[in-house]
């Protein structure tokens, strides 16, 4: 049945706008939706926030994301305290695809980050994949989180990677 659908689909010329990085549905930060988002849908694409994953402020956590069709570039992980805005860069990770991985179409990546020392009820984590080339391509995925627990500060550390207003 799947092959039949595929054959029918291939009869048409493709016209679509999707992409290839997602927070892992089996990791600590499941994606808000599975439609991966391009630049024109940034920062989080279509979909309303879902029930957030509960986390503790300042804690080290392991993040997991899925890359489809591995390509050279880098990943950036951002935190938003509310409303998918005021993104703060938490980590940047180079993505150099090995010869072995070039033959794969699916890779699960993992990285540890330290959550900001804040509390927030509707915050989000975003991953951006940049595929470098003649024209760079960017793909986006967001996850909803809630940060509880003791926090001395309600503002993000000003020494963090925050852009100016």
């Amino acid at each position: 049945m799947k092959k039949l659908m595929l054959a029918v689909a291939l009869l048409f010329i493709a016209e679509s706008i999707r992409a290839n990085v997602l927070w892992s549905s089996t990791g600590n930060t499941p994606p808000r939706h599975r439609n991966i988002t391009l630049e024109n849908g940034a920062p989080c694409g279509v979909g309303t926030p879902v029930t957030p994953t509960l986390m503790n402020s300042g804690k080290d956590i392991q993040l997991e994301w899925e890359e489809f069709i591995p390509q050279n570039g880098y990943f950036e992980i951002y935190f938003s305290p509310a409303n998918d805005a005021n993104w703060v860069l938490l980590k940047k990770i180079d993505n150099i695809v090995s010869a072995e991985d070039l033959n794969k179409t699916f890779i699960i990546h993992k990285a540890n980050i330290q959550l900001p020392d804040v509390t927030c009820e509707a915050c989000s984590l975003q991953i951006i994949q940049t595929v470098t080339g003649t024209v760079d391509a960017k793909y986006f995925s967001c996850a909803d989180i809630q940060i509880t627990g003791p926090a001395d500060k309600t503002q993000i550390d000003p020494s963090s990677n925050q852009c100016p207003e």
Partner: peptide
């Protein structure tokens, strides 16, 4: 992890993107 909808025309893995 991939669903059938990802392979219909315009789905996650049956698509094209132009960038200028």
């Amino acid at each position: 992890k991939i669903i059938d909808d990802d392979f219909v025309e315009g789905g996650n893995f049956n698509r094209q993107e132009y960038r200028c």
